[in-house]
Simulated assay, not measured.
Amino acid sequence: MQRPIVLTFLRCANLSLLVLYPVAWFAPLMRAGVLPLFSLNEISVVTGLQSLWGSDVFLALVVTVFALFAPYLKTILLALLHFDLLSARTLPAIHVMGKLAMADIFLIAVYITLSKGIGIGRIETAWGLYLFTVLILASILISWLSEQLQKRPKD
């Protein structure tokens, strides 16, 4: 493909993340319940953060940075790069933001694994977890393609 077509695709894909991340933050990541016979409560990134702020402020701050700020800031930086408003020398910093953003998927996976291992309650994954995971992986792919595009000579 030609460079302008690829760049246009990357711009559109990256800008769509700016809209889809907030959707993923409010989408149900999982449904949790204490006993199998009772209904399950839906947990999203936002509701999880709300309960964390009430119990463990430090952990809530860490998760807020990883789940909200890091992926969104990375997406904004990539958009600036795509529109030539940011130097290509910032790509290493953008990669660091991407690694921070991936940490939240790990935290969610640990939470689900621990909850299922205890055996007290019931946890079911919901569509928001898949959406959030796809968005993080799409962001990683967009970053990688952007880096490859920056390495190629301009047409």
Rank of each mutant, 00 (worst) to 15 (best):
P71H: 05
I76Q: 13
S16T: 10
R122E: 15
L80S: 07
T113I: 13
Q150A: 15
Y72N: 08
A24V: 01
T125L: 15
L35Y: 12
L7F: 07
V62G: 01
R11T: 11
S143I: 07
Y21E: 05
P153N: 13
A101R: 01
L61C: 06
V23F: 07
L73W: 10
L49G: 05
F58S: 10
V46K: 04
L129E: 02
S51L: 11
L137D: 00
A138F: 03
L73M: 14
Q150M: 12
F83E: 02
T90P: 00
L145F: 08
A101K: 06
F26K: 06
A27I: 01
I120C: 09
K151H: 10
M97W: 10
R11D: 03
T75Q: 09
T133M: 06
L149F: 04
V96R: 11
V134S: 14
L61A: 07
N41V: 14
T75Y: 11
L137R: 12
L61M: 09
H95C: 03
I118P: 04
A13L: 08
S39L: 14
L10W: 07
G54C: 12
V19E: 00
I123W: 04
I140S: 03
I43P: 02
Y21L: 14
Y130D: 06
A109K: 09
Q50K: 12
A24C: 03
I142G: 09
I112P: 02
I140M: 03
R89W: 04
L129Y: 13
P153R: 15
S39M: 13
G98T: 05
M102W: 04
S87Q: 09
A24F: 05
I112D: 01
H82A: 07
L129A: 12
A103L: 13
L59P: 01
Y130A: 14
Y72P: 00
A109Y: 01
S39D: 14
L17T: 03
H82P: 00
L137W: 10
A126C: 10
F83Q: 03
V19D: 00
F132E: 00
S139I: 01
A79V: 14
A79E: 08
I136Q: 07
W53C: 12
M30H: 04
Q150P: 02
K74D: 03
D56R: 15
